[in-house]
Write a protein that binds this DNA or RNA. Structure first.
Lengths: 278, 278
DNA sequence: CGGTGCTTTCCGCTCAGCGATACGGTGGGC
DNA sequence: GCCCACCGTATCGCTGAGCGGAAAGCACCG
């Protein structure tokens, strides 16, 4: 940045991003002083930059003056491929699965060594689980995670297994050898199973969503209460959905905005945009 | 910013944000040259800043070198109150409404003069409508919009009516006087109706989600095909859901992350987080 | 094999950003 | 009622981070 810095070598942009990064699921609301502390910036600097972010509505402030993530940033985030295309296409299929089962339906992608939850459907009748959209969970202890890992490239699988495999319940597979065997079994039968490996009382089935080339990047799964588990019965529906999603993804591969007219004129100029409601 | 600018008075932060703002629903994928053009920056500058955004994963690049919104930005956006709290609380109720009706269920908030769609549920059986999460639509021609507008503060309503009221179908209410009458009717009966006012062939009901104090900021609505419209029949369920959501919102008002343990230790350190799956 | 349009790198000039310091407000202890 | 601690905000003069024209590198085309 310009001038008088205590920590030279850091760019303005990096500082602004550090402010955004100061928020997390446990701290979605921060006073200036803590925002500055968490971002590692002097209060005066944080104040100035936060003011600019606020002007753009990347941040906003509530009645108490606390900073929060702003609407505009939320809107921008929705344009990420994982939300814009994948989620949009998968949603109706997930909805159908929900209707058929009334259980938790999950859509996750691989990101680094985590399964990143892109969408989750659950009603009041589903097993309560506190995963939410944006949650990251390990791949060896979740259904969608195992589905992604089983079909990943060999070097990746080995890299994953080299790392410690944290144990969440007494059923979590946390030995390298057992995990590799489990993954082989998964590819053989074409779907992943977990039984109380992440949380006592719930178990899950999941299938990969095949991608055009290479390893699948997304997986679709269902989590149910152990007591009412008849998981393999759910596989055909799950697999049909995954294949349908894959087909739609391939068909719309070069569509910037699926289901959307491109380069729409501004709202007021459109005749009958069939954009919505009644 | 520092040095040799063509357009002095603009800050680095503003430029970085301009890059993010260059993406929209019709342009979720941009080559450097167009990114620079849309952001109003020289290519060299855009390249440098985009590189920094990419390092943080606010942006990423696909195989062709095109820039897209990055995963990290998506994750950050999820922390916005509309997604983090409102959506999270409303979701199961929306799901129940979907189960009962199998129609499109919408959750929207007021933002400026627009109804901003925060969540939408629809399966394959619902009327196809191309609104999606993050879409903005006018308040005078949509169900959720009317519900929000009818209960807004008087000065806001008048400011809204002063502006032109674009017409989308021959049923759109685009005269000031008729709109004001319609809004009065809406508050009297406690719910909003639209009949083919945005799109021929579909109509909707919506109710406001009462807020602790002042005008409601969110509304819940259902869009159905005109042919199978028995809208008022849906009102009781809709209203019960809206009230339940309002209650949950009030109860968790100071909860940073509803349903979540606060200040979780890092993943690998937790014993049995009951975070998910089986 | 010159031309055209892109992405990427270089580098010296300069002003935008930095943050210590100061100021006003608010609340808690005594 | 007074003090002190802590917070958010405003000021301002010093300085190196950022700027972007220019040129190199690259890919495709005719």
């Amino acid at each position: 940045m310009a001038g008088n810095t205590r920590s030279p070598g850091q760019s303005v942009t990096a500082r602004a991003l550090a402010l955004l990064g100061a928020f997390d699921v446990a701290h979605p609301r921060l006073p200036l002083s803590e925002l500055a502390r968490r971002a590692g910036l002097p209060a005066a600097t944080a104040h100035r930059l936060a003011g600019e972010l606020e002007a753009w509505r990347a941040l906003d402030r509530d009645d108490d003056g606390y900073y929060r993530i702003g609407l505009r940033l939320w809107e921008a985030g929705l344009l990420a491929p994982v939300s814009g295309r994948l989620r949009e296409i998968a949603m109706p299929f997930m909805q159908d699965l929900y209707e058929a089962t009334r259980e938790n339906i999950h859509l996750a992608v691989r990101d680094g060594f985590d399964a990143l939850y892109v969408e989750k459907l659950s009603g009041h009748r589903s097993v309560p689980i506190i995963s939410r959209i944006g949650t990251r969970l390990p791949m060896h202890s979740t259904g969608v995670g195992k589905a992604l890992l089983a079909y990943a490239e060999q070097p990746f699988v080995h890299a994953y297994c080299e790392r410690p495999l944290p144990r969440y319940t007494r059923y979590t597979i946390s030995e390298r050898g057992r995990l590799l065997r489990e993954l082989r079994l998964t590819t053989e039968r074409g779907y992943a199973l977990t039984t109380e490996e992440m949380t006592l009382g719930s178990c899950s089935v999941a299938v990969p969503i095949p991608s055009e080339e290479g390893a699948p990047t997304a997986a679709l799964g269902i989590v149910v209460h152990s007591a009412r588990a008849e998981l393999p019965r759910l596989v055909p529906a799950l697999r049909r959905s995954a294949e349908a999603i894959a087909r739609r993804m391939a068909e719309t591969a070069d569509d910037p905005a699926p289901g959307f007219l491109h380069d729409l004129p501004p709202l007021s100029a459109r005749a009958n945009p069939r954009a919505d409601s009644g």
